[in-house]
Nucleic acid binder design. Structure first.
Lengths: 237, 237
DNA sequence: CGGGGTGTTGAGCGTGCTCAACGATCGTGG
DNA sequence: CCACGATCGTTGAGCACGCTCAACACCCCG
């Protein structure tokens, strides 16, 4: 699904009242820099299922996710898909070495992002080591998450994968919105399956199994943790 | 296996005649900086199987690999292991956000590395944006490799995994030492299995299968590519 | 020559996949 | 407002890929 119309607002927003300011890239900027930075980005919107950028596209922009969730994925020639991550508000997308995006990114539900043209953004970084440092920190954190996910993909059982996913996703949402036993799952079962290296059927079966055991309750658009300790035990650290 | 004796040489080496200078982190330094940089690092040696650092160790040093191969891995509480990568000369190890290493690193065969104490190194970076930029580039490249590996772990069959590994490993060696159809494999079958999310038996069987089909020849300490096109077909891009 | 580590091969099993049908949910238009 | 179709999720039956368990071959080193 490709963008038919992507809304671009003339910059009527200011960074100072931005929801993700504080934990996004821009957290590293002082007020003076922020004023300059504000002119570099435009706020853009994407509708459910819209593709923000594709795997082999030449990189022309970076994105700072403000609202919504995105799936980041790679496709094999025969159509098999691996979701390499879900992006949440505060995540910075588009950095790469090759000049091309090395994964694709779709909006899951409505998404708002701050878009930066590559060239001016790169120039802006050049004399702001603090911003570069911040971007580096985010990359290193992502690398650590990527390695954790490799362990999950290569060495965990289906049950462990699902349990680990639920707890990890919950953790990320808690960091954004505070604690709750209700965990919204905006992505489809297929998305979860492609993230965990499973099939949709196995994910579905594992969910119902967890529910039968009283560990979770499947609700519309998410799950509710009934017995967090049990789920943690299943995740096996 | 823990280090019993780790040899540390008083700095009798100079960066200027370093083998990896040109593609390691230090490639970003000019001659003047290099002179200063030289005093930050010490050349250290590790014997076969020695652990350079462990997953939950507090990070006190960074390492720039000069010679040899290392396995980078994570362990689950029950002992299952996932190798998240193999390090080759030029690779820079130890960057992290948490203050602790988030994976362990062993020497596969004899290893020589350039060791930097964390604090002085971090200070040295601070007023050298070019070095930070270089580190960032390496991190972003690693991130891209990590995502590729997630696809392999989550969505490829055993045959595809092995074929893809052979080609990828060969590519990395070619970048270091030039092209050859003979591909040395210094790591054990168990290492390969733990890298690909397979068992040692499956790796062994797949190797012999490839050999029976005339795609490769198994030689001591490695393989020889007899029919690269066939292996590439099996890897399925 | 013996012993331990590493790699190979075989037989049988089980987890997770495939294929297929059914059920739930939601947007759309009559 | 409900009928309709499409999409998404659930459930079942059977199968296959890769794992488990076990035995054996090989090789380096003592």
């Amino acid at each position: 699904m490709r963008a038919s119309v992507t809304m671009i607002e003339p910059n009527g927003h200011s960074c100072s009242d931005c929801a993700v300011r504080g934990f996004a890239v821009c957290a590293s900027l002082d007020p003076a820099e922020l004023g300059e930075f504000e002119h570099l980005g435009r706020r853009v919107h994407f509708a459910t299922g819209e593709t923000v950028f594709s795997e082999e596209d030449i990189t022309t922009s970076f994105f700072n996710l403000l609202e919504g969730v995105m799936r980041l994925y790679k496709l094999l020639p025969d159509g098999r898909r691996q979701i390499v991550g879900f992006a949440l508000p505060g995540d910075f997308l588009g950095m790469n070495m090759s000049g091309r995006h090395n994964f694709s990114a779709d909006a899951i539900g409505a998404v708002t992002a701050c878009q930066f043209a590559k060239v001016p953004f790169s120039r802006f970084i050049e004399d702001r080591p603090h911003l570069l440092q911040r971007i580096n920190e985010l990359a290193i954190r992502e690398l650590s998450q990527a390695r954790d996910h490799m362990v999950l993909l290569g060495r965990r059982s289906a049950d462990e994968k699902v349990a680990t996913f639920l707890l990890g996703w919950r953790e990320r949402l808690i960091a954004l919105k505070g604690s709750s036993n209700t965990v919204p799952l905006p992505m489809s079962r297929q998305d979860i399956a492609d993230y965990l290296g499973l099939t949709i059927e196995t994910v579905s079966r594992t969910f119902t199994k967890l529910e039968r055991h009283g560990a979770i309750e499947i609700i519309h658009g998410g799950i509710c943790l009934r017995d967090p300790a049990r789920v943690e035990a299943l995740a096996a650290a």
